[in-house]
Design a protein around this nucleic acid. Structure first.
Length: 596
RNA sequence: GGUCCGGUAGCUCAGUUGGAUAGAGCAACAGCCUUCUAAGCUGUGGGUCGCGCGUUCGAGCCGCGCCCGGAUCACCA
């Protein structure tokens, strides 16, 4: 698509060549949107050209300005401030842009498929405790990045690798056997994941008591911890599980089902989903053969004790264990195996792992070892690393009970949304069900925006006592703006008005131009967000647009305008603004209520 | 100690390939509901962009050195 930006860049190149005899590429032309405090739409930075012109920045800008005005019809005027050439594009052009955008029913989404396919693995919970705020960040990032890639025309397979086996799972199983007395989630009326999580905590409590008791009886600390009876029982249970003992497997399956049902509910509430779910219990032995082949090929080495290692010292890293003395796999080995399978089974161009930054090293090593093993896809695995969510007192620690539970947080936010809405009397006339739907959308909008507006790789802060705001730079502000736009459209409909293409001869005000320019930027923002795997760019864009519209809305009446053409343009602008906001926010999973 | 990531207003965060006087929100203060939604709008105050040196016409952004914080370097996952 040829935009005015491309035309300007091309003409500047031409002008520099004709006037100063220097040849440069279009990308060397520094074009930026003119800052609000100056008049103009695009600004050419002319400092770099002064070495060719041999003149002052001002004189050079003046010359270029003249040239551009003569050669480009859309250039209406220009002004020069220091070395900055501000170009004013005609109102006609911007109205044309608005009309073109308005014809695109899926504005912001790529029109054509790219042919690229991504697999995105995210969430990946342990089935021994409920989801917390850290998982929320993971889930929202994974889902949103998937949506953004889809919007860019890529195919995306969203997958979840459920960590459903291991000693931590056995701990809650043992605790349930010993202390539950036959209790089930249904019987005590508790969500399955919370129910099982309670027994995981119960295990830890019992374990600590046993360790303290044994230390008091004079047993050395390390032995007290390593040989605590309940821990031995958990280990024994893991052995039975791996041996396929039917009773153990049955209990394991039963408790896992409880947890998974609980997760399913939380996922549904958050609005995230998966195309495929992997279970670690089915994949944990994978990778072993690949490692053995690497050993045979001489890429890996075996220690005397029997364990198999990769030597990464050549890459500035350490030695990495891949098979234990007893021949069993470690986490890394499994990941090699599952990645291998996935690249073979699906025709994927890139595999993205949404995993916290504490595993940066792991993924660095994974990529290196896969490369050593000779897999062509080794460099097509990417770790989408995100920072932790911290509380005012520091990291969340499940052992210290400082985790912010996902279900609790969401429920609390829905309550706040409900209370606020009722206090403001916003939804009078809505049925109970309709209103609840809005409370849910607003609460989740607040949560999602709060999480996604922050650069993924940064550690972020959550203060439970302040919770998450509904005013200001928030999701609800964006939703509110949309609801206002919808309200305008409803009112317009009542008086028999619907937006038609705008008249090019009716000039736009400055504020209207700003909004058209912002709306026009959406496809670029979506592309950039995709290239950077960063929903934050889109989140901040949606907010900027909403803020701009609110100011516009305050300054200009939309329906009260006397001139039909002006009213129509403003209505069209409002409608398109709504489309852009809805689509941008939609890629973040933020739903727009019709009223709020 | 090695590697990686961060440090921007009292707090939470933005800040495009290096560009003009570094921006929002929250909190504080002062205004605005007879008007299409006040979850809003307008205004005031608030900054040594961790510190230093360098590159550049120009540095929050690039380079080097340091300071502070975090993560990680398991026969755990």
């Amino acid at each position: 698509m040829t935009t005015i930006e491309n035309v300007l860049a091309a003409r500047v190149v031409q002008a520099v060549k004709e006037c100063y005899g220097a040849t440069l590429a279009e990308k060397d032309v520094q074009l930026q949107e003119t800052r609000k405090e100056f008049t103009g739409d695009w600004t050419v930075v002319v400092f770099p050209f002064t070495r060719y012109s041999g003149k002052s920045p001002e004189a050079t800008a003046q010359e270029l300005g003249d040239y551009l005005q003569q050669h480009i019809a859309e250039v209406e005027a220009y002004n020069v401030i220091k070395g900055f050439l501000n170009i004013v594009i005609s109102s006609t052009y911007w109205i044309d842009v608005l009309n073109v955008v308005a014809r695109d029913t899926r504005y912001g989404y790529a029109r054509e498929r790219s042919g690229r396919r991504y697999m995105i693995e995210y969430s990946s919970p342990n089935t021994n405790k409920p989801l917390h705020l850290g998982h929320i960040r993971n889930n929202l990032l994974g889902w949103s990045v998937s949506e953004i890639q889809r919007a860019n025309g890529h195919d995306v397979i969203m997958v979840n690798l459920v960590n459903d086996r291991g000693i931590h799972i056995c701990k809650s199983m043992i605790a349930w056997q010993k202390f539950a007395d036959g209790a089930t989630p249904e019987r005590v009326g508790k969500k399955g994941d919370h129910f099982v999580g309670d027994y995981y905590v119960r295990f830890d409590k019992e374990y600590k008591a046993q360790v303290d008791d044994r230390i008091n009886r004079g047993i050395p600390e390390e032995e007290a911890r390593e040989q605590a009876p309940i821990l031995l029982e958990a280990r024994e249970m893991l052995r039975r599980w791996e041996a396929g003992d039917p009773e153990t497997i049955a209990l394991w399956r039963r408790m896992n089902d409880w947890v998974l049902a609980g997760f399913e509910e939380t996922y549904r509430l958050m609005g995230v989903s998966f195309d495929k779910i992997y279970f670690e219990s089915e994949t944990y032995k994978k990778g072993r053969d690949l490692v053995l082949k690497g050993l045979a090929d001489g890429v890996l080495y075996r220690k005397e004790s029997g364990s198999v290692w990769a030597d990464l010292t050549g890459d500035g890293l350490d030695h990495k264990l891949l098979l234990r003395d007893d021949g069993t796999s470690v986490y890394m080995t499994q990941d090699i195996g599952t990645a291998y399978d996935r690249f073979n089974e699906f025709d994927i161009d890139e595999e993205i792992y949404v995993v916290g930054n504490e595993q940066n090293y792991h993924f660095q090593v994974l990529s290196l070892i896969c490369k050593k093993l000779g897999f062509a896809w080794a460099e097509r695995i990417r770790h989408l690393s995100y920072g932790m969510v911290e509380l005012p007192q520091g990291r969340m620690k499940s052992r210290e009970g400082t985790v912010v539970d996902a279900d609790d947080l969401i429920a609390e936010m829905i309550n706040t949304a409900r209370a606020t809405s009722r206090e403001l009397g916003k939804l009078d006339g809505y049925s109970e069900e309709e209103a609840e739907e809005v409370y849910r959308k607003v609460a989740l909008g607040a949560l999602k925006y709060f999480i996604l507006k922050v650069d993924p790789k940064k550690t972020m802060m959550f203060n439970p006592s302040e919770s998450i705001d509904f005013n200001g730079n928030t999701g609800p502000f964006i939703q509110y703006t949309y609801a206002r736009i919808r309200s305008v459209e409803r009112k317009a409909g009542e008086i028999g008005c619907t937006a038609r293409p705008a008249d090019p001869l009716t000039p736009l005000t400055g504020k209207e131009r700003e909004i058209v320019k912002l709306i026009a930027r959406l496809p670029a923002v979506v592309a950039e967000a995709g290239a950077n795997y960063s929903p934050a760019l889109l989140a901040n864009y949606a907010y900027d647009l909403a803020k701009e519209f609110n100011q516009f809305y305050h300054d200009y009446p939309i329906l009260k305008e006397e001139a039909e053409a002006i009213r129509n343009t403003r209505l069209l602008l409002a409608t398109q603004c709504g489309v852009a906001i809805r689509n941008a926010a939609g890629m973040l999973g933020i739903e727009m209520p019709e009223r709020m």
